[in-house]
Simulated assay, not measured.
Amino acid sequence: MWVPLILGLVAVQRMGELVLARRNTARLIAAGAVEIGAGHYPLFVLLHASWLAALAVLTPWTTVPNPWLIAGFVALQLARIWVIASLGRFWTTRIITLPGAPLVRRGPYRFVRHPNYWIASLELAVLPLAFGQLWIALVWSVANALLIHHRVRVEEGALSERNRC
């Protein structure tokens, strides 16, 4: 029964990331950082939680996943870890900015802006497709694209002052 195993592993990973994000957020706030755009954050929590729930409810648990797409999803997890490691203490799930701190320009940030959003967007499509859930991939990808469009604008505004550092 691959579906509960894989979804369980994804859920455990995401919960671990939330613990790390909360710890980093608390440390940054204590150091004088500020949160920007907090109003849309619950929508991301809802999006990601409902995506996982939809996969769990709508995918027959006897489904055998496509091994190539699962391998792609695993590769995305490695890229996700690269992003988290590259940002270090600055990685959070919220938009937190520490005035005067230089922007991170190592790891995947050398090549692309907002790599975490690209990775998360691909994850929202690849995992459902691995289980044959085209509609979950489409619906959640469109919802994510709308949220990401707004979030990137908010984040770019928050980071514009730090771009000059």
Rank of each mutant, 00 (worst) to 15 (best):
A130H: 07
R113T: 07
I84N: 02
V126Y: 10
R94T: 12
F73S: 11
S141F: 15
A125K: 06
A125P: 09
L134Q: 12
R113K: 15
L69R: 14
I136H: 08
A101M: 00
R113D: 08
R94S: 13
A145H: 08
L129W: 00
P108E: 04
S141A: 06
A101V: 00
G100V: 03
L146F: 10
R113F: 05
A130W: 14
A125T: 02
L87V: 08
R80V: 04
A75W: 13
Y109I: 09
H149D: 14
Q77S: 10
L122H: 07
S121M: 05
A79E: 04
V104M: 07
L146I: 09
L78C: 13
L69A: 14
R106K: 06
Q133F: 08
W140V: 06
L122P: 00
L69Y: 14
G100H: 06
A125Y: 15
W140Q: 06
N144P: 02
L78H: 10
V104R: 04
N144R: 04
V74M: 12
A130R: 06
T92F: 09
H114I: 00
A101T: 07
R113G: 07
L122K: 01
I84W: 04
G132D: 02
I136W: 11
R110G: 09
Y117D: 06
I148M: 01
L127H: 03
W140N: 01
H150R: 15
S86A: 13
L146R: 06
G72C: 15
R94P: 03
S86I: 07
A143Q: 11
G132F: 11
V112S: 12
S121G: 15
A71T: 08
T97S: 15
L146G: 14
W140L: 05
A120L: 11
I119K: 00
V139I: 15
I136Y: 14
P108K: 11
I148Y: 09
R94L: 12
R94A: 12
L146C: 09
L76R: 09
G72H: 10
P115D: 00
W135Y: 13
L69C: 15
P128V: 11
G132V: 02
F111I: 12
W91Q: 03
H150G: 01
P128R: 06
A120M: 04
Y117V: 00
A125S: 10
G100C: 06
L69H: 14
G100N: 07
A79S: 07
Q133P: 00
